[in-house]
Design a protein around this nucleic acid. Structure first.
Lengths: 144, 144
DNA sequence: GCATATAATTAGTTTGACTAACTAACTAAG
DNA sequence: CTTAGTTAGTTAGTCAAACTAATTATATGC
């Protein structure tokens, strides 16, 4: 096992690892019939609660125009609902429907099942290490 | 620090962490003027050496058709070169040019600089932990 | 030698991203 | 209180990257 601690090397390794991990797991997203960006938006709405289109766009790091199209599609599929914002008539409250929530959960489970099957083959120590790493990675990512 | 070792929880944490990490770092990609998929292909060619289009497509998990277009573009920009395969006249050997290598390195450095700046704030122990985690993640991802 | 498989390309489609331009509605300054 | 500026969301148009299907050239196996 390597024991590098120089930042550039760790950054390289971590970056590659994150890319590979997500790529390996991406296949599971297709099976739900809903694209990854749409599943991701559903996920934000599920865990973050109803919010405006602009807020959702910001959370997903896309422009409002892009999110507008995604939400239009999701609404047509019955996975989200748009409600007028009472306090600001320009605004929307976008919320997940029951179907949307179910579908998002299903997609998430499929995706994780892939990872989980592989994780189960690791030693307990390795899993603990990964869990700790995940926490540090989140801390890294949320820094301004 | 959490010490969970149950696979589903670790899978969830890891997946979220990977998504956030890449999202946080994605902004740096644009600055080179070459898209992320192209930079990624350059990276594979740099570290994996010259290879056929099909092999590269497989490594990048896209169809040969998609890779063909990417390589056509990269060649037009002088970042890769196509050579005929001597042993198989249907095949290509695609290799990075010096310019391609330089540009890929530059893009990679920009992207990593972001991560590195944050990593530098961690303790040495935390960096070592992340490095080990990266290795395990790679192992996970490359399993069939 | 012919059938079949493989390497790469080409054509055509879809999706998701962008910018620019627009409407509607809110906010503040005079 | 009206007008100027801002903000929320949509629409139109463009682009890149992914796909599938079809084409061409070469390899390989019976």
């Amino acid at each position: 096992m390597a024991a590098r601690s120089h930042s550039l090397e760790v950054a390289t390794a971590l970056h590659r690892a994150a890319i590979r991990l997500l790529r390996a797991v991406r296949v599971a997203d297709d099976e739900t019939g809903v694209s990854a960006p749409k599943l991701s938006a559903l996920s934000v709405l599920t865990f973050g609660g109803a919010m405006s289109l602009t807020a959702l766009a910001r959370a997903e790091q896309v422009t409002p125009a892009t999110m507008s199209k995604l939400i239009t599609d999701l609404e047509a599929e019955g996975l989200v609902a748009k409600r007028a914002d009472r306090e600001d008539k320009r605004g929307l409250r976008i919320e997940v429907t029951a179907r949307g929530r179910a579908l998002m959960e299903e997609g998430r489970k499929r995706r994780l099942a892939l990872l989980q099957k592989r994780l189960a083959k690791l030693s307990r120590d390795e899993r603990v290490l990964l869990d700790q790493a995940a926490e540090i990675m989140l801390k890294l990512s949320s820094e301004t």
